[in-house]
Each structure stands twice: as structure tokens, then as C-alpha cells.
Design a protein around this nucleic acid. Structure first.
Lengths: 193, 193
DNA sequence: GCAATGATTTGATACACTCCTAATTAGATG
DNA sequence: CATCTAATTAGGAGTGTATCAAATCATTGC
């Protein structure tokens, strides 16, 4: 779980990074500072905006430590921190990276929704037509069976019928999908794959 | 000049890229699709937003060719185009890259502003105190001299005084800054560095 | 062909962010 | 200490865009 929190923070950092860079004026600003240091006044003139606007943008860049400032007289001379830029680039958008950053509660949320949609209390309204949703329902159903116990067919049917009348279909699906196993009229639940 | 146009387009592409990525929902979307393909319905449930919202975001990702879609039944299954992602990453923010993307009209604009600020017509209101601005003014002043011509001191003073009374100071600065050269009371303009 | 299902498009609302002007702060200079 | 300059901060107008509900479109299945 600690892991997940770290991932969250890293995700937010990445998001912040993109947000800061996703502005035309700021990107130009970086472009100028990439080749030389410059004062706020210069930057304003070069970009065709007012000084406060430049200050505003520089403040955002500062939050990423992308720029450094040194005062000379009343001027503030800004320059790009190339090291920070290089570091930031490492944090890049790779497939593996992103996948690891997103909590897989995503999957879980989706399954919750399917169950909400198809159940009223613990009665199954209907058997989902789509394979994917049916699997979610069957998975839930399988969990109603205890692990390590043996069920005669009559008992299996009873248990299923507490949730839906068509026990034959559901029983067959539970077997076919590998949630239950059967031998000589005796059924048992298989451990989660 | 053709070069500049290309750079402009590339700059805009880079900007678009950051804009698309600078959204929490979209970044999560990419994160999910990084590990598996998914339908709009699933994505909506996983992200906790409505289907239209997901469609909207997917449309933006499509503009960068970051996702691919295949239809299965009435579902549209989306997946991340890892190749596109890798390509996009190459377009990265390197110091050299950015510097080349930003037109150096930036500098020019700044100089124009200094001249506007300190001149009324072609009369210099005052000699700028800051070294940087003074250089801009001196540069302009130097250009009022013809290249390859010889000026006696009296003529130099006359020319300068058309723009500002303190010809002594300005003449000295023009020499010191390397815009004019002098030998035995004769002055001439040096070619631009 | 007619529902039903999932996706997309459209139109409206709300929030965030850029940019401005005006006011304030911090340094330098007389 | 007063004044000037450059930068920053505060506050507000205008714009863009994320989101939703409602309407529309496309595909499957009866």
C-alpha cells in the first residue's frame, strides 16, 4: 500500500510537469532561456506580454525547478537549469512506467459497476450477454461457494437458485469457466487463478 | 526562412503534445491502456466518468495517434500505440532542440522596444543607465556612420549631436565598445562583429 | 425491419488559467 | 531618506476546456 501512495505522488508530479509545459508562452520562455539568461523585462518584450505575466509564468517554472534566478541590481536574471531539464526528461512517459503508476483499482471499479448493474440485493436480474460481464458475475457467484468443501449437485443448484432461477445454465458456465470442478456428481470450488 | 516555418510547426506539435497529456483523466486513461485494451464503457467505469467524457478524451489522444481502436460487436476496444508513444518521446524537450525552435526574433523585438523607449523620433531622450540597453542604443548610433568612410572628430561630434547633446560621452563609449576606431584624430566605423 | 446496446456528437454549464491593470515590494542611486 | 527602477503580488475580465445530459449514430440480435 505504501507503494501505491508513492505511485500516486509520482503520477501527480508527472501530471504537474505536463501542465506546466502545456502553455505556448511558457514553452517559448523556456526556448529563450535555453540559449541565454535574460531579465523579466527582456522576456516580456521578446514574448510580447507584460512583465507580470512573465513573472507569473516563471513562478510556475520555478515549481518544477526548471529555472534559476540571480539578481543583478534590480534586475532578476533567469536561466534554464539544464540539469533539472535532463532529470525531468527521465521521468518520461514509457508504457511500463505509466501502467505501474495507475492503480489497478481501475479493474475493481469496473467490476463493482457490473455487479451493481446486474444485481438487486443478491438476486441476479439477468445473466449478462457479454462474455466479459458474465465473467464478473460468475466470479462473484463462485465466491459464494466455500473452498475445500464438497457439494452434491442438489446443493449446488440450491445455492445458485438463491441468486437466479436458471441454475442449469449457470452451473454449466461455472464448470466451463474453471471456477468449479465436478467428479461423479460431486462439485467443489477451485482456488482463484 | 523555410527553416523557420518548419521550426514553427514543430514547436506547435510539441505544444499540442503537452496539452493533450496535461490532463489527469487522460493520463490515467493512458495508464490503463498501457497494460491492456479496454472498451469505452469499461474505461468510464474505471475512471469514474461518463462515456461521452471518455470519448472526448480518446478523440484528443487520437489526434496524436496515441491510441488505436478496433470494433468488436458494438464495443470499441482501444489500446495504446506503443510505437507512437516511443516516437513522441523522441520529440523531447532538450535544451538544444528548444533553443532552435524559438525564433530569435525575440532578441530583435527587445531591441526595438529599447529604441522606442529611449528615442523620440531620432532624438535620444537620455543615455540608458543599464549596460545592456546602452549597448542597443550605441549599436543603433554606430549604424548612423557609413562603413569605409573616414570621419574627423568634428564630424563625429556633429553626427552624434543630431541625436544627443553629450557627444563626448557617446563618442568615448562608441570607441570603448568597439563600434568605432580612431587613429591620429581620424575615426571610422568598424564592421559588425 | 425493430428493439437493444454501446459509442459518439451536440449543447450547456462550470471551473481553471492566462493575461491584464493597479498596487506593493525590494534594491539601487542620488 | 527620497526617488527611481525592476519585479512581484493582488484582483478581475475573458477564454478555453472538462464534464454532463440529451440526442443521434452504428451494430448486433430477434
Amino acid at each position: 500500500m505504501k507503494q501505491a501512495v508513492v505511485a500516486q505522488e509520482e503520477f501527480q508530479r508527472l501530471l504537474q510537469f505536463y501542465k506546466v509545459l502545456a502553455d505556448e508562452t511558457r514553452l517559448k520562455l523556456i526556448g529563450i532561456l535555453a540559449s541565454r539568461e535574460a531579465s523579466v523585462e527582456e522576456l516580456a518584450a521578446a514574448l510580447g506580454v507584460r512583465e507580470p505575466t512573465v513573472s507569473h509564468h516563471l513562478a510556475k517554472l520555478k515549481t518544477l525547478n526548471l529555472v534559476q534566478m540571480r539578481a543583478e541590481g534590480t534586475s532578476h536574471l533567469y536561466r534554464l537549469d539544464g540539469e533539472a531539464l535532463r532529470t525531468a526528461n527521465k521521468e518520461l512517459l514509457t508504457r511500463e512506467k505509466l501502467a505501474s503508476l495507475v492503480e489497478d483499482h481501475a479493474d475493481e471499479a469496473w467490476q463493482q459497476k457490473v455487479l451493481r448493474d446486474f444485481f438487486v440485493g443478491d438476486r441476479l436480474k439477468e445473466i449478462p450477454a457479454s462474455r466479459k460481464k458474465r465473467d464478473v458475475v460468475l466470479h462473484w457467484l463462485a465466491e459464494q461457494f466455500a473452498l475445500g468443501r464438497q457439494y452434491p449437485e442438489r446443493e449446488v443448484n440450491q445455492l445458485i437458485q438463491r441468486h437466479h432461477p436458471d441454475s442449469a445454465t449457470l452451473r454449466r458456465e461455472l464448470i466451463g469457466g474453471g471456477w468449479l470442478a465436478r467428479e461423479r456428481g460431486i462439485y467443489w470450488r477451485l482456488p482463484p487463478k
